[in-house]
């Protein structure tokens, strides 16, 4: 792969996480446990899609051939989406939604803090803008982990269940792809392997504060970064891509 292809893949690797997580949150609008959480989750979804647009517009420019942000968002095959498995997990209940968000937000904020230092000025600028939003996301999801963990017996059981179930998807956040390695070498990308210890320290501290157990399992799932997804992904994409597939080559 040449540098241009590496950069293109690198951007998708970042942006696809926001796309798929934003899509999952968008499913919940109007169905939240309270008006306030409904507004907050919709707001996070909006932030993520805003970030997605900045990344894809940049990726489209790199790719050339009049590629558009929408072609990148809607017209790839499942195997070409590079998001981690964590973000595509379904909204089983509010505990899963919050846990998925929390486990991603802690990583996302650390990642953006490093991406801000990128020598690629566009990526650095997107990181600066996104960090403000993501620091709010992290506050929101951590607060809810505390509330649910240290709330009632029922809520504790539910959030512990969600944490145990989603824990298996955390390790993949720190896997390096070929594009990652090339970008790190050029000082344009983030070495995610260096974030791992700090990530688990932060997550474990908040779980402990929330009176929750840190899972001990060392069995982890991976594949998303190589485009091998869970079975949930196809259904998510059939919603996401519905209009573009049914009415090809039209403007909206």
């Amino acid at each position: 792969m040449n540098m241009k292809e590496n950069l293109y893949k690198y951007i998708l690797g970042i942006a696809d996480n926001s796309l798929i997580l934003g899509q999952r949150l968008g499913e919940l609008t109007g169905h939240g446990p309270s008006l306030e959480t409904d507004i907050a989750c919709t707001n996070i979804s909006l932030d993520l899609f805003g970030q997605v647009r900045s990344y894809y517009q940049y990726a489209a420019k790199i790719k050339g051939d009049n590629t558009t942000e929408d072609e990148i968002a809607f017209l790839r095959r499942e195997r070409e989406y590079l998001n981690v498995l964590l973000v595509e997990q379904p909204n089983t209940d509010f505990a899963y939604t919050i846990t998925r968000q929390f486990l991603f937000d802690v990583y996302h904020f650390m990642f953006l803090t490093e991406l801000e230092k990128s020598h690629d000025v566009t990526l650095s600028a997107i990181a600066t803008k996104s960090m403000k939003e993501v620091s709010y996301h992290q506050r929101f999801s951590s607060d809810w982990v505390r509330r649910l963990g240290d709330g009632t017996e029922e809520s504790k059981e539910k959030i512990q269940g969600a944490i145990n179930a989603l824990w298996t998807y955390t390790d993949e956040l720190f896997h390096q792809t070929e594009a990652d390695k090339a970008m790190v070498e050029e000082k344009n990308g983030v070495d995610v392997t260096t974030l791992k210890d700090k990530y688990y320290d932060t997550v474990n501290a908040i779980l402990t504060e929330a009176t929750l157990d840190v899972p001990e399992s060392k069995w982890f799932q991976k594949g998303g970064k190589k485009g091998i997804h869970t079975e949930h992904m196809g259904y998510l994409l059939s919603d996401l891509q519905y209009m573009q597939r049914t009415y090809p080559n039209m403007e909206w």
């Binding site: 939240g32 446990p33 309270s34 959480t37 209940d93 509010f94 509330r147 649910l148 709330g151 009632t152 029922e154 809520s155 539910k158």
Partner: peptide, 9 residues
Amino acid sequence: RGEWVRDAA
């Protein structure tokens, strides 16, 4: 479905 969440809060 949100009752347990509001109770927890």
